[in-house]
Write a protein that binds this DNA or RNA. Structure first.
Length: 484
RNA sequence: GGCGAAGUGGCCGAGUGGUUAGGCAGAGGUCUGCAAAACCUUCUACAGCGGUUCGAAUCCGCUCUUCGCCUCCA
């Protein structure tokens, strides 16, 4: 089976073949950096992280571009609003650059903890003003745009396919029922700004042939996507809420100048909801990742996200997170058992699991099914290990390799080192391993002497500090509990 | 009003015509000094009403409900 991707533009799954054999170009809309990242960002970037990982695993050379939007788009109506980053700068009594730098770092901190790999190129919008101006000039030259009073607008009537992504193709019909369009300088109500003249007191502004101002918010993605990936790219990803107008505008302005398809596969990930309502900063119901990480292992959050499909809404609740914590721990437990097990004699066939996993991922990145395969493997492995024959060293290695490839390299959920001590704490980890050895030896001695009061005290006190002891047929093992 | 998505068991969440999704929680059992972990068994489903079909959670129609977009948004 080959890879099939749901293409939002066609509203159907299509067989994926890159434009240039062996090479995949992918652009994903990045965050606007005026606040800490929330769970919605996590869902988006974890989802596309897995997409990229799977493409690479499938043998493609992937060039992944994810922008940083450090020009704040307008908060209210296009005329009345204030730049979000400028607003935040005013609130924090600093300047916009400091705001965007601060929250960019914050964003990467959170993504690193979620085990999201960095994009190959992370271009900032403010670093590409000349490219954006050049794009506007091309649009003016080709008659797709017009200038009025220092503002430049894209003329939607000049691009017949406008709205094809979102299905909003009938511009006349769209005008009835929507808010009254106040601005009269536009030729058509659906026309959108490419360049805006800066109002009095506007902090972020640049010189341009038309006015001292700032770029329209759809422009950056087109300019940077085409600069780094070419005029036609394989995949463009983003949140569903950006289909219209953002992505439709990108298509219009890009295809107007190139005459070529802008994007071959559009991928849109769905929203995170809280009690069924979309999570959003403006709705004041967003779950800040830094807060969430205080209570929950970031990899549990990643696992929680991957347990649903990227095109499905994901409803957040504490009980759902708790269920994921326990579930992920189960997978860790299996890996631990597999590693520590003494070789047996029976064979164990990993192939069917590998095939099911591959099929799931090839079917539009169906991570919930892929995760289910890991659980099925876990169950089968545990059952096999419970039998007296155990499993052979070869099978043990194969199972472990599969778990590593699928769970660690592709899904990125089994990246916690076995005893939960990461590389930074390796030395301390070794010492704790030694201490645990002593404690477990003492406990075993107590148990042999039927001094259960002492042995249980050791067990309970360790549990109190987040270390769990497990008595198995093959001896005693221990692990740290998730989130501790 | 327009465009789009969806309603699955206590909760989360896959599945598009016939075959166990999976996880968490619950019940019983095996194991254990007792637990935990693990394993085995097991209970709660496909919003409603029609229709197509030998057969529908899955296709069609209607109804109800929810959500997203149409303003910045992952």
């Amino acid at each position: 089976m080959s890879l099939f991707i749901y293409n939002s533009l066609k509203r159907a799954k299509e067989k994926f073949e890159p434009l240039h054999p062996g090479m995949v170009s992918i652009y994903v809309c990045g965050p606007t950096v005026y606040g800490h990242a929330h769970l919605g960002h996590a869902k988006s970037y974890v989802s596309f992280d897995v997409v990229v990982r799977w493409l690479r695993h499938s043998g493609y050379h992937v060039k992944y571009v994810q922008n940083i939007t450090d020009v704040g788009h307008l908060t209210d109506d296009a005329d009345e609003g204030e730049d979000k980053i400028s607003k935040q700068a005013r609130l924090e009594k600093t300047d916009p650059m400091e705001i965007s730098q601060f929250y960019t770092r914050s964003f990467y901190e959170d993504m690193d903890r979620l085990n999201v790999l960095r994009a190959n190129i992370a271009p900032a919008a403010t670093a590409h003003i000349p490219e954006q101006i050049a794009l506007v000039e091309r649009l003016l030259a080709t008659g797709h745009a017009y200038e009025v009073n220092g503002n430049v607008y894209f003329s939607v009537e000049s691009f017949p396919g406008y709205g094809k992504l979102s299905g909003r193709t009938d511009q006349e019909a769209l005008q009835s029922g929507i808010r009254v369009e106040m601005r009269s300088e536009k030729h058509h109500p659906s026309d959108f700004a490419l360049w805006k003249k800066a109002e009095e007191g506007h902090l972020m502004k640049w010189n341009s042939p038309w006015s001292i101002g700032y770029p329209g918010w759809h422009l950056e993605c087109s300019a940077m996507s085409m600069k780094y990936l070419g005029e036609t790219i394989d995949i463009h990803g983003g949140g569903m809420e950006n289909k219209f107008p953002h992505h439709d505008c990108e298509i219009a302005q890009s295809e107007s100048v190139t005459g070529k398809p802008y994007v071959r596969f559009w991928m849109h990930n769905n929203m995170v909801t809280v009690n069924g309502i979309k999570m959003g900063k403006s709705l004041k119901n967003s779950i800040n990742l830094k807060d969430l990480f205080k209570e929950t292992d970031p990899l549990v959050i990643r696992f929680f996200i991957l347990q649903s499909h990227y095109r499905s809404q994901l409803d957040y609740s504490e009980s759902a997170i708790k269920a994921s914590t326990t579930g992920l721990e189960k997978l860790h437990e299996t890996r631990r058992r597999l590693r520590n097990q003494k070789p047996g004699t029976a064979g164990f066939d990993v192939e069917p699991f590998l095939k099911r996993f591959t099929d799931a991922m090839d079917d539009d990145f169906n991570t919930p099914v892929a995760v289910a395969v890991l659980f099925d493997l876990s169950k089968a492995v545990n059952a096999a290990l419970d039998r007296s024959e155990g499993i052979s060293e070869e099978s043990r290695q194969q199972s472990e390799a599969f778990l590593h490839t699928a769970g660690t390299e592709i899904l990125g959920i089994l990246n916690k080192s076995e005893q939960a001590f990461d590389n930074n704490n390796l030395q301390i980890g070794k010492k704790i391993d030694g201490i645990m050895e002593i404690l477990l030896e003492m406990r075993t001695q107590a148990r042999n002497n039927k001094d259960f009061a002492l042995s249980d005290k050791i067990r309970d006190r360790l549990l109190g500090v987040g270390i769990e002891i497990k008595d198995t047929k093959d001896g005693v093992s221990w692990s740290t509990k998730s989130g501790t």
